[in-house]
Lab assay of single mutants.
Amino acid sequence: MAAAAAAGAGPEMVRGQVFDVGPRYTNLSYIGEGAYGMVCSAYDNVNKVRVAIKKISPFEHQTYCQRTLREIKILLRFRHENIIGINDIIRAPTIEQMKDVYIVQDLMETDLYKLLKTQHLSNDHICYFLYQILRGLKYIHSANVLHRDLKPSNLLLNTTCDLKICDFGLARVADPDHDHTGFLTEYVATRWYRAPEIMLNSKGYTKSIDIWSVGCILAEMLSNRPIFPGKHYLDQLNHILGILGSPSQEDLNCIINLKARNYLLSLPHKNKVPWNRLFPNADSKALDLLDKMLTFNPHKRIEVEQALAHPYLEQYYDPSDEPIAEAPFKFDMELDDLPKEKLKELIFEETARFQPGYRS
C-alpha cells in the first residue's frame, strides 16, 4: 500500500510507478496490472468513496492506442447498470505532455475469474450472474457493438453480487458484411471463450460470437473449470467437437473457408456428449439454455433477447427493466489503419471533457 500523499506533496508512487492523480484522489492501494497499465484503488475526496484507477501508458504502440481509444469512446457513450462506466479521466493539459491516461471507475471487490478459483456457486448465484451478463449484453448488442472478449476476468463483482462487464478494448461495431482481413492475426481474445466460426472463417462476425462466450462462462460457473481449455488453435476446435459432436452437413455448409471445411470433413465422426453427463448436478433449465448458447452453427445460436426470456431466468426476466441503447454506435473511421500519432490526438480530444474549465 502506498503511503497517503500529504496535501501538495506531488504524485504518489505505487510499486515504483508514478500515479499522478492528486489532489482529488489519494490513499492509493495496488490492485493489479494488465498488459499496459496498473490498477489501484484510491480515495475520492470529492465523492467520499474509494474508486478504481487504471493507469494506461499506450502511446508507444499502435495496438494499445487503438484499444484505449475504443474503450474510452464506447464506455463514455454507454450507460447501463451492468456495464462499468467511466467516472473521470485524468491526463496532462497538453498533448505533448500526455504520456499516461488515468481512467477512474467504480471500485468492484472482485471478478468472476477470482471468485470461481475459490468458491463453488449455488444455482441461485449462477442464475443471477447469468441474468446480469445477458442484461448488459442486450444493451451492448442493441448499440450494434460486439464485445468480443467476454470471459470471467472481464466480469466485475461486488459483495452485493452486482455484476458489471468491463474491458471493451477489443470491441467492434457489428459488421457481418465487412471482410476484416487479418482478423485472426489481430484477434487476441482469450482462445477458450472463442466461437468456432472465428477459427473457421475470417469473413465478418456477428453478435452470436458473444453468446458463445457467455455459454462458455455459464459452463464454467457450473463446474469451476473452463469447458474448452484448448492449448492452441486446432486443439481448441477438437475440444469443442469432442463435446458438441461432429457438425451436420448443414452446419458445414455455413463454413465459407474450404480449407477449414475440408479439415472438419477429414475428422472421424464424434457423438455429442449429453450435458447432464458433463454437469450431473446442474439445473435442467440451465443445461437447456447452455445447449442453445453453445450451438456450433452461429445462425442457430440463441440471441440475447431470447436467452433473457428463457425459463431458467424467469424469476428475473423483465423486458421493461432491460434497457437498450438510445442509438446504434458508430465509429467515424476504422481505427485499425491509423498511425499511433493520430490515435493519440483522438484520445486527447475524447478525454477533453474531463479537463478543468472544459467548454463543449
Results as ranks from 00 to 15, higher is better:
A3N: 05
A4K: 03
A6K: 05
A6Q: 10
G10P: 02
G10D: 04
E12T: 03
V14H: 04
R15F: 09
G16L: 09
F19Q: 01
D20I: 03
V21T: 13
V21P: 07
G22D: 06
Y25L: 06
Y25Q: 04
I31R: 05
G32E: 02
G32I: 10
G32F: 02
E33M: 00
Y36V: 15
G37M: 12
M38F: 13
C40M: 05
Y43P: 04
N45D: 07
N47F: 11
R50V: 14
V51W: 04
V51P: 11
K54Q: 13
S57E: 12
S57C: 12
F59Y: 14
F59P: 14
F59A: 14
E60G: 00
T63W: 10
T63Y: 13
C65G: 00
Q66I: 04
L69T: 11
R70V: 05
R70A: 10
E71Q: 12
K73R: 00
R79A: 01
H80Q: 14
G85N: 01
I86A: 00
N87F: 08
D88H: 08
D88A: 11
I89D: 08
R91T: 01
T94A: 00
E96Q: 10
E96K: 13
Q97N: 01
Q97S: 11
M98Y: 09
Y102S: 13
I103S: 12
V104E: 09
E109M: 05
E109I: 00
D111N: 12
L112C: 08
Y113K: 13
Y113R: 13
K117S: 03
H120E: 10
S122T: 09
N123P: 04
H125R: 00
H125I: 05
I126D: 05
Y128M: 03
Y128P: 06
F129Q: 08
F129T: 10
Y131F: 14
L134P: 10
L134H: 02
G136M: 03
L137R: 11
I140W: 06
I140C: 02
A143R: 02
H147V: 03
D149I: 06
L150E: 06
L155V: 06
L156G: 11
T160C: 05
D162H: 09
K164M: 08
G169S: 12
A174W: 03
D177H: 13
H180G: 10
G182K: 03
E186T: 09
E186N: 02
V188N: 06
V188Y: 08
T190G: 11
T190P: 13
R191Y: 11
W192H: 12
Y193V: 13
I198W: 11
G204E: 12
D210R: 07
S213H: 10
G215D: 11
M221H: 10
S223Y: 15
N224F: 08
R225N: 08
P226I: 02
F228G: 00
Y233M: 12
D235G: 02
L237A: 11
N238M: 07
I240E: 03
I240G: 09
L241W: 11
L244C: 02
G245V: 13
G245F: 10
P247V: 07
S248L: 07
Q249G: 01
D251I: 01
I255N: 14
N257C: 08
L258D: 10
A260Y: 01
Y263P: 05
Y263F: 15
L265G: 04
L267R: 00
H269I: 09
K270M: 14
N271S: 01
V273Y: 11
P274T: 14
W275F: 08
N276V: 08
N276S: 01
R277I: 15
P280L: 12
N281L: 08
A282V: 06
K285S: 09
L287V: 10
L287W: 10
L287K: 04
K292H: 03
K292Q: 03
P298T: 14
K300N: 15
E305Y: 09
Q306C: 00
L308S: 01
P311I: 09
Y312I: 09
L313T: 03
L313V: 09
Q315R: 12
Y316P: 00
Y316C: 00
P323R: 10
I324W: 09
E326A: 14
F331T: 01
F331H: 08
D332G: 10
L335C: 01
D336G: 00
D336T: 10
D336V: 14
D336H: 01
L338R: 01
L338K: 10
K340D: 02
E341K: 14
E341P: 12
K342A: 01
K342V: 09
E345N: 09
L346A: 06
E350V: 14
Y358W: 07
Y358R: 09
R359L: 11
